[in-house]
């Protein structure tokens, strides 16, 4: 027992040394899993001598839960998607962004600004965007697929992988049925539920973190996934074709925001401004092919026009979320 206590004290001392002496500040960041390459973070730490405490989440709701259940000042920079930005503003959990402190914000393409979720970008600036697409392994499937309704074909039994996101998947069913992606009419939702139950036998898995793995291991031949994931899968498996569904698609834009009561505001601005450098954005999109809102040569092959012409943002629907939640439990 004595040895254990001594060991513990040693560990405490070591941890004190390593975090105390080498950095002059910290920034507490909460971001999506696999979004910024490790070396980008490390370069920032080396350049500014600021330690990045990096936490991750895999859904906007998880982010909200973490933000609202933790003490003020726990986090500095977070990357909520569009509808979550609106929600966080309405709950008073974000603080206004001073664009004068972000010299690199001139790099942002105006098409991405002034979106419905934060009309004049008082609280947020776009970080990365992506859209929902269909991916098909042409090695195994030659069929003509262009609409969500094509997925209902009995041939595809146990062969489809879907993003594990209730708003996106229910939204897809609503689009397939010809309704608005954010429809809250209960009869329309019932139709969406029927549609998803018809699809159920074809679904191999729901996976939000890495649907691409299913393609790389040829576990499934059709996927509804984020465009960036589909492009990564295509790099590994060139037989994959990316299809833009005829009914339209969900857009998702993740944004830089600063949490209210953040303790390290200056470091937060330094971190955001750093990520807004063109060369840093290139490094990030090189590894994760999302669409960058910066005026750079995109690695992603989807055109910015297409993103917005047929795209819809997920919107806040208030208490109707309970109907969505129940529908989700019904189809699982």
């Amino acid at each position: 027992m004595k040895k254990v206590i001594v060991l513990m004290i040693v560990i405490f001392l070591l941890s004190g040394c390593s975090s105390g002496s080498s950095y002059k500040g910290v920034v507490n960041v909460l971001n999506w899993t696999s979004y910024i390459p490790d070396n980008v973070i490390k370069d920032f730490e080396d350049e500014y001598n600021i330690k990045v405490n990096y936490g991750t989440y895999s859904s906007n709701e998880e982010l909200l839960a973490k933000i609202s259940s933790s003490k003020e000042g726990t986090y500095d920079v977070i990357f909520p998607s569009d509808y979550m930005v609106e929600l966080l503003i309405s709950k008073g959990l974000l603080q206004k962004i001073d664009k004068n402190k972000l010299s690199n914000s001139v790099n942002v393409d105006r098409t991405f600004l002034n979106q419905t979720y934060d009309m004049s970008n008082d609280y947020s600036l776009p970080f990365l965007s992506t859209i929902v697409v269909m991916a098909v392994n042409r090695n195994h499937l030659k069929d003509n697929i262009s609409s969500y309704n094509d997925l209902l074909n009995e041939k595809y039994k146990n062969n489809i992988v879907l993003i594990d996101d209730q708003r996106i998947i229910i939204g897809m069913a609503l689009l397939a049925k010809g309704y608005d992606m954010n429809d809250t009419n209960i009869y329309h939702l019932d139709e969406a539920k029927e549609w998803l139950l018809d699809l159920k036998d074809n679904v191999k898995a729901y996976d939000s973190d890495s649907p691409k793995t299913f393609f790389i291991t040829e576990e499934a031949d059709i996927g509804i996934m984020w465009h960036a994931e589909a492009e990564i899968a295509k790099e590994e498996n060139p037989n994959i074709e990316i299809i833009y569904p005829s009914e339209g698609h969900a857009i998702s834009t993740d944004n830089y925001t600063i949490v209210k009561g953040a303790k390290n505001i200056n470091n937060a601005y330094l971190f955001i401004n750093y990520l807004m450098r063109k060369e840093v954005a290139l490094k990030i999109t090189e590894e994760y092919p999302y669409i960058s809102p910066l005026k750079i040569t995109q690695k992603s092959k989807v055109s910015v026009d297409h993103v917005f012409s047929k795209g819809f943002y997920v919107k806040n629907i208030g208490l109707d979320i309970k109907n969505y939640d129940k529908l989700w439990a019904d189809i699982k």
């Binding site: 859904s59 998880e62 839960a65 209730q166 729901y206 309970k322 939640d325 699982k332």
Partner: peptide, 20 residues
């Protein structure tokens, strides 16, 4: 594969995603 919800997922979702 995230297809089957067990009671554990249900509780986890209420606390972390459905916010109920």
């Amino acid at each position: 594969g995230g297809k089957a919800m067990i009671i554990g997922n249900l509780i986890k979702n209420q606390f972390l995603t459905a916010r109920n």
